[in-house]
Design a protein around this nucleic acid. Sequence first.
DNA 1: CTGGGGATGGGGCCC
DNA 2: AGGGCCCCATCCCCA
Length: 580
Amino acid sequence: MPSGPAAQWWCVWAGRGDMGPDMELPSHSKQLLLQLNQQRTKGFLCDVIIMVENSIFRAHKNVLAASSIYFKSLVLHDNLINLDTDMVSSTVFQQILDFIYTGKLLPSDQPAEPNFSTLLTAASYLQLPELAALCRRKLKRSGKPFSSGRGGAGLGRPPRSQRLSTASVIQARYPGLMDGRKGALTPQELPQAKGSDDELFLGGSSQESVHGLGRPVCPTSGEAGLGGCSTNGSSGGCEQELGLDFDSQHGSPLSASAPPVSNSASYAELGGAPSEPMDLEGAEDNHLSLLEGPGGQPRKSLRHSARKKEWAKKEPVVASPFERREVAPKGPSPGEEAEGLGDRVPNGILASNMATAGGPYVEPPYPCKEEEENGKDASEESGQSGSEGGSGHAGAHYLYRPEGYETVSYGDNLYVCIPCAKGFPSSEQLNAHVETHTEEELLIKEEGAEEEAEDLSAPSAAYAAEPRPFKCSVCEKTYKDPATLRQHEKTHWLTRPFPCNICGKMFTQRGTMTRHMRSHLGLKPFACDECGMRFTRQYRLTEHMRVHSGEKPYECQLCGGKFTQQRNLISHLRMHTSPS
DNA sequence: CTGGGGATGGGGCCC
DNA sequence: AGGGCCCCATCCCCA
């Protein structure tokens, strides 16, 4: 015997004595929809987030997919959808979402009655033929002319430039019918909404037992990964299997900024739709007939899911991101920014960079940032002047000895000057030694090192080759242009001017912050042609492609081991150099 | 159980 | 603004 809301339904079902001989339950579809809508209002089992302007809506993929071919293609690969704000406003989308879940056009928050022109535009954009037809009829009856497309029907909204940018405070919006306010979240509620990040990335891992039923398995990837079905069209198969129209699917369908390619079947309905009441409840079967979604949501691999959990785990604990945003930007809290700059040997030599470049790279001291950012790793010891020097594990982990160097331990001389391979027991002594190298001398040795490590590009060579007249006033770094210098000088600031609007984390560069936002939003525009796996960065895809090609361009000069990724070579080199 | 390798995610920084 | 590369951290697999 079911309990809770299901019990209500059960009672309704069991109490009916007028069932036909065919055992059909007349109210089945209605009750099903009612349950789904109730779940939506509570966020229960919602597995997709739709962002419109500054509002966030939660819904069920299956319901959206069953309602619109366009949604069907969007939710197949992504858990978060951004809709083109020129085509649909948050207010209109609220109405549309209510319509999808109820079959009724409920009055929106603001206008006294639905703006059918606006709704029609949005319905056309979202490929909701029934709603579009409904709007057309209403417009026809009211005698108002209508036109579709951008600006035609008029959204009654200010131009894009006057609207809040997506970077502004996100007004999280639950479809909160429960409290009668249509779900605008308070800042206090947002962390809970953010808690849905897991769903966002996991595809609802905690609910996989539910959603996973009937999940299609991508034949190309061998598993039901979220990116398992490539959208590039080359893998085929998946779309066919699911019966989806993927004509317009190239790259990520997530960003829905472009209107969908018109679907003939859908738009045909726009032309001459049969007369229907505004409330589709009477035709609920018709409405519900759309509920024949893809059967289940593809998901990311379990491994990927685990990573995402880890990601969530790593997010800074912020009581309220909004509270945090309101305070003036300040330096990072201890431990929050413990990473980065971790392997700088003082005064000197960025050992891991040398491994990269195959040559020396003179790194100036970081009087501010070092103290600010040094944290838990080895550089905390080695990175501070007057620190305790060579004891412990500092320094030597990152040393790289080119070919010809012995792999034997340097003993206590853990601080090694790369150009001349001399070891020193402390960072101070290494620093003093480094200063004895003239730039010219370094360049000469660098050329030799390049020959030894030709795989690894040499940024240091470029660093020295071109004139760099713009010098940092804080450290010794030089730059080719003033803009880059300005950007660099910001790294010395204690403030981090760019906060993430979702989690409140602060960043020194806008680009880093926006890139960080992509991870929140699940934006992964770069898809692997081979396996469909998606990445937030092009570089990651390039890196990943070597998994398929088998290319291992990074070779250890000490043991000849080859690696697909440079970072793994560096990790491997530590194994050679770490004192053990 | 442990260590090494493969693979991936996120942040910092420079171009 | 975005790309590219660097870094660290982490997870998973396997010997």
